[in-house]
Amino acid sequence: MALNTPQITPTKKITVRAIGEELPRGDYQRCPQCDMLFSLPEINSHQSAYCPRCQAKIRDGRDWSLTRLAAMAFTMLLLMPFAWGEPLLHIWLLGIRIDANVMQGIWQMTKQGDAITGSMVFFCVIGAPLILVTSIAYLWFGNRLGMNLRPVLLMLERLKEWVMLDIYLVGIGVASIKVQDYAHIQAGVGLFSFVALVILTTVTLSHLNVEELWERFYPQRPATRRDEKLRVCLGCHFTGYPDQRGRCPRCHIPLRLRRRHSLQKCWAALLASIVLLLPANLLPISIIYLNGGRQEDTILSGIMSLASSNIAVAGIVFIASILVPFTKVIVMFTLLLSIHFKCQQGLRTRILLLRMVTWIGRWSMLDLFVISLTMSLINRDQILAFTMGPAAFYFGAAVILTILAVEWLDSRLLWDAHESGNARFDD
């Protein structure tokens, strides 16, 4: 018995066209964080690309023209004298008006014999932002004059995390709450300039795509075929072959399989920071003279006294001054041990922890910024005066060393310790 099946006739004509040209192939790229070699397709503007294995951002879609970056830099340069030299806060102490600005706080630190601690604050609040705007201006002028731009481009990517104007702005709020127990506070004209400078700096850093600047100024022929001998440069993120001198053909720094002496430098910085954190938390970090009496505060006791007036601000200072430094030390110690013992479990967790400490590390400088600003506000000789204690130097040095330890660690070593050939990683 035959089955009668109805015929289905399409209502619209289906047209099949042959592909007349070869589909576009992607360029081969190595991930600078996990060293995976993959094919990167062509990316349009405002599109980002991520590593298929570790999800690290390979290409950032946010990109401004150099002219727009230069305009932002010149605007920031105009704001800087007002943000640093004009009063941020006014207080009335014992019937006398006192003005506080950024430069005055750094000068008070240096004047009291601790120039190293003052230079830490100076670099993060004044030096690094000033280098940022002058570097962008150098790129703008240098591109037109045919100057060598490689050193500036190499420095810009590392400079971003040292620009800490946003953290200093939080420190202004913390210092205001600490001082309000002794005097009446009012915002100064410099505060508005400083807030504007923070906003412009944040926007500029978020749109400063150094890798795209490398592509514009020093374009290189990408690798179009897969080759395990391809290496990625950690300076400019170019994937290719080393030249005859073993250097990256684009930025001219040595092109090595792994960062040289990464573990040794990381261990040295980490152990030194552990040693410095002990006096930083045991010795007094601030000293207040009130009517001839002397009151010393460690980091913890200062947080407890701050909690009596504002528990939320005390929580912020606790996280930045105690929780973050010790968390960074514990995480980095764990990561280094996992590399030495070739741990194969929990790779995803370790990668996330490394990215976390990379982002939060700079916030530990908050305590030094609060001390710097408070020193310029309260300084009335023996009637009422505020000065920093010996722990300030140890704390600042420990924070900087932990930042350097994270920067010096080559994250690809975590993958080397893991089993080879993993296309995915999980716990």
Score class of each variant (00 low, 15 high):
residue 1 M to V: 01
residue 3 L to H: 13
residue 4 N to T: 09
residue 10 P to I: 07
residue 10 P to M: 11
residue 12 K to V: 10
residue 13 K to L: 08
residue 16 V to L: 10
residue 17 R to N: 10
residue 17 R to T: 09
residue 18 A to K: 08
residue 21 E to C: 09
residue 23 L to F: 07
residue 33 Q to G: 13
residue 34 C to R: 00
residue 35 D to R: 02
residue 52 P to I: 11
residue 56 A to L: 14
residue 59 R to E: 09
residue 61 G to V: 10
residue 66 L to E: 15
residue 67 T to M: 13
residue 67 T to W: 15
residue 68 R to G: 03
residue 68 R to A: 02
residue 69 L to I: 14
residue 74 F to V: 10
residue 77 L to E: 08
residue 78 L to Y: 02
residue 78 L to W: 10
residue 81 P to I: 08
residue 83 A to H: 03
residue 87 P to K: 13
residue 89 L to F: 08
residue 89 L to Q: 08
residue 90 H to I: 11
residue 91 I to Q: 09
residue 92 W to Y: 04
residue 101 N to T: 10
residue 102 V to I: 06
residue 106 I to P: 04
residue 109 M to C: 09
residue 114 D to A: 07
residue 115 A to E: 14
residue 116 I to D: 13
residue 126 I to M: 09
residue 133 V to P: 07
residue 137 A to V: 05
residue 137 A to N: 09
residue 139 L to C: 05
residue 142 G to I: 02
residue 143 N to V: 15
residue 143 N to P: 10
residue 144 R to N: 06
residue 147 M to T: 05
residue 152 V to I: 07
residue 153 L to C: 12
residue 159 L to K: 01
residue 161 E to W: 03
residue 161 E to D: 11
residue 165 L to Q: 14
residue 166 D to L: 15
residue 175 A to M: 01
residue 179 V to L: 02
residue 185 I to G: 05
residue 186 Q to T: 05
residue 188 G to Y: 06
residue 190 G to A: 03
residue 190 G to N: 03
residue 199 I to W: 06
residue 203 V to Y: 08
residue 206 S to A: 15
residue 206 S to V: 15
residue 211 E to W: 06
residue 211 E to V: 11
residue 214 W to S: 15
residue 220 Q to Y: 13
residue 223 A to E: 13
residue 224 T to I: 09
residue 228 E to P: 08
residue 228 E to S: 05
residue 234 L to Y: 12
residue 236 C to P: 00
residue 237 H to E: 14
residue 238 F to T: 05
residue 241 Y to E: 05
residue 241 Y to H: 15
residue 241 Y to R: 06
residue 252 H to M: 03
residue 254 P to L: 05
residue 257 L to G: 04
residue 258 R to W: 03
residue 262 S to W: 12
residue 263 L to W: 05
residue 264 Q to V: 02
residue 265 K to L: 02
residue 272 A to L: 01
residue 273 S to P: 04
residue 277 L to G: 07
residue 277 L to H: 01
residue 283 L to H: 04
residue 291 N to C: 11
residue 292 G to R: 08
residue 296 E to F: 08
residue 299 I to M: 15
residue 302 G to Y: 00
residue 303 I to G: 06
residue 305 S to D: 01
residue 327 T to N: 13
residue 329 V to C: 10
residue 332 M to T: 06
residue 338 S to Y: 15
residue 342 K to E: 12
residue 345 Q to W: 15
residue 348 R to G: 11
residue 352 L to C: 11
residue 356 M to W: 09
residue 362 R to D: 02
residue 370 V to T: 06
residue 378 I to G: 00
residue 381 D to A: 13
residue 385 A to T: 06
residue 395 F to R: 00
residue 397 A to E: 09
residue 398 A to W: 06
residue 403 I to M: 11
residue 405 A to P: 03
residue 409 L to N: 08
residue 421 G to W: 12
residue 422 N to M: 12
residue 426 D to K: 15
